[in-house]
């Protein structure tokens, strides 16, 4: 047994050295191969773009994007004011005198808030009635249809 031991250790050493050599060979083979692919691909893409103008463009906006909808006051750039009672009373029901909500007026949040604020100011200043609509403005053209709200409501 004792005579065999050195022989086994010798063969083991040979195996180890062989494996190391294989590993080093693999590394040497793989590295340049991968790097060359990367270099080639980018150059290839550039060449393709230069040579072929029919290739799809990458950085382009969505051509099918819909136009942004604006509320009626933003669209015509109208600034509501508490002195313009006629305009304000168009956002008030002619039956109940209440201010129509956003689901009926179709205004953006900021404009609706502003309309409500200005109506309150006009009412406080004694220029506009609360819960009433001036008879002179009763038959003004409708800016929106209260019978067709974008969301159902409790009235």
């Amino acid at each position: 047994m004792s005579a065999l031991m050195p022989a086994i250790s010798k063969t083991g050493n040979i195996l180890k050295s062989f494996m190391n050599l294989r590993a080093s060979l693999q590394v040497a083979r793989v590295r340049p191969f991968t790097s060359s692919i990367k270099e080639n691909s980018s150059r290839y893409d550039d060449l393709k773009k230069e040579s072929d103008p029919d290739m799809p463009l990458e950085d382009i906006k969505n051509p099918f994007e819909k136009e942004k909808i604006k509320c009626i006051l933003c669209e015509h750039n109208i600034r509501v004011d508490y002195k313009n009672v006629r305009l304000l009373s168009q956002f008030v029901s002619r039956y109940t005198g209440r201010i129509y909500g956003r689901h009926i007026t179709r205004l953006c949040k900021a404009q609706q808030e502003r309309v409500e604020k200005e109506i309150w100011k006009a009412q406080q200043a004694g220029l506009m009635g609360g819960y009433t609509r001036d008879l002179a403005y009763a038959n003004d053209p409708q800016l929106f249809n209260p019978d067709q709200p974008i969301r159902p409501h409790r009235f």
Binding site: C71, C74, E75, R102, Q111, K121, A125
Partner: peptide, 23 residues
């Protein structure tokens, strides 16, 4: 004087319409 109120005159600040996001 029957009634008087004092309101601040607000400066014009352009507001971007957010209706397209709200609907």
């Amino acid at each position: 004087v029957v009634r008087s109120r004092i309101y601040k005159v607000e400066e014009l600040t352009p507001v971007e319409c957010t209706l397209h996001e709200e609907i």
